[in-house]
Nucleic acid binder design. Structure first.
Lengths: 229, 229
DNA sequence: CGGCGGCTTGAAAGGCATCAACATAAGTGG
DNA sequence: CCACTTATGTTGATGCCTTTCAAGCCGCCG
């Protein structure tokens, strides 16, 4: 039986950054749109910081390659989130950013962004809320056991994707197990084993990269303590 | 022989948040000062979010107690840093905040903070730099081995305390090994063992909670890949 | 002086990485 | 559309690293 994944509709009206969008503002701050295919990169690393990227559709991973050639994934950026805040203070981009699936980005020029914020205090408050939220991402990466990390990660994705279609609590997993492992600091095999175990205990089910949460409470009790949302 | 720790002078002029300070502004946004002794708490957890706390002197740990009674340290806030950003979006404080040593805090009212920011775009840019920086904290918590985590942690503290007194590269360690462990997700014994090892290899030395970096390069090569500063 | 918390060190157990072999899926070119 | 190739996921065996438990040490403070 196929699990029916909630579809991820795209509409500017649903975008958290709608208010920063040139379609809605007299000040035109969003200039470019970027369309990335799966595995295509923005290749920003070491580039001068110019602006932010709103993910309107799809998902990005931000990563560095260490001297041994391992890819260290520093962050995941999902639909309606923004990549680039981390780079403001340094004036350059730290990471390469690669699309995990078909992805649409809106580029926001930083100077124009500042203009807009200082002329509209509601927007400023809104932005601080968004950045504030982002500060809480990834708290579970400190959790000790692999099971806790993965459980917290799933719940994190779930809350960030905010998708609930009727009784089904399911969403599309936008990463490979390898990428999950790189993000959580665990081996691919460990991810696979834990998923198998969670499936056997009927806590989740996975089919075609579509993950369904069968027993959220159990998942939460596994992640216990490392959730802050 | 005593290691001479660089002293941590206190002066508003050196404070990153000087420009938000009522001493320097016509708008009075910083109302209260708080003086905390070691182990004294702000006890904010579950309180309504009202404002931010600038650490003018000392250090804070932000933590939660999990159902098993373990203290999970979510963040460390050092001199010149601000505690409270994470709470903006939720409207309440997530954590209890406890002083790790004698600590002086300046409270910044959030509404007045917003007023000030929207009337001064230089301040806004400054703030975004500060928040941006904070987004990069703790990247090393994902590193796999305990040695990597601890090495990266030491270097992180060092860069955040920004203390260099002539040829000595040393600073006061504001936490117990137990707290370091809780922050890094490692057992106290592990912290102790790794410190012993680093001392034996003459990479660092520790005396009376004052830590001296004897071979920064070696420390960096241990932390390899997980440093982003 | 005694008690207590923090640090140190040892021995044992357990969890995860690593290596390897295989299964399955996806992507490519003829 | 199939044959081939490559990426991704699964499963088992082994070894290492970190936790846990236990005991002892040291400095601090009442």
């Amino acid at each position: 039986m196929m699990i029916e994944c909630a579809s991820q509709k795209s509409a500017c009206a649903e975008c958290s950054y709608e208010k920063f969008c040139f379609n809605k503002q007299s000040i035109k701050i969003s200039g470019k749109e970027h369309y990335l295919k799966k595995n295509e990169s923005l290749n920003l690393s070491e580039d001068k910081f110019k602006g932010l990227y709103v993910i309107r559709e799809g998902a990005l991973k931000a990563y560095k390659t260490d001297p041994d050639g391992n890819e260290l994934i520093h962050g995941l950026y999902l639909k309606n989130e923004v990549y680039g805040y981390e780079s403001i203070y340094k004036g350059e981009y730290f990471f390469s950013a690669t699309a995990l699936c078909e992805t649409i980005l809106c580029e926001i020029s930083y100077p124009k962004f500042l203009d807009l914020l200082s002329s509209n205090s509601h927007l400023l408050d809104h932005l601080l809320h968004l950045m504030s939220h982002q500060l809480t991402f990834g708290a579970y990466l400190k959790s000790i056991t692999a099971q806790q990390r993965l459980a917290a990660f799933i719940l994190d994705l779930f809350s960030r994707l905010l998708i609930e279609s009727s009784s089904l609590i399911s969403f599309y997993l936008p990463l490979s197990y390898q990428d999950i492992g790189r993000y959580l600091g665990l081996a691919t095999e460990t991810i696979s084993r834990i998923f198998s175990q969670l499936k056997k205990e009927k806590i989740i089910s996975i089919e075609n990269k579509c993950i369904q949460l069968l027993q959220i409470d159990k998942l939460k009790s596994i992640a216990e303590g490392f959730l802050i949302h």
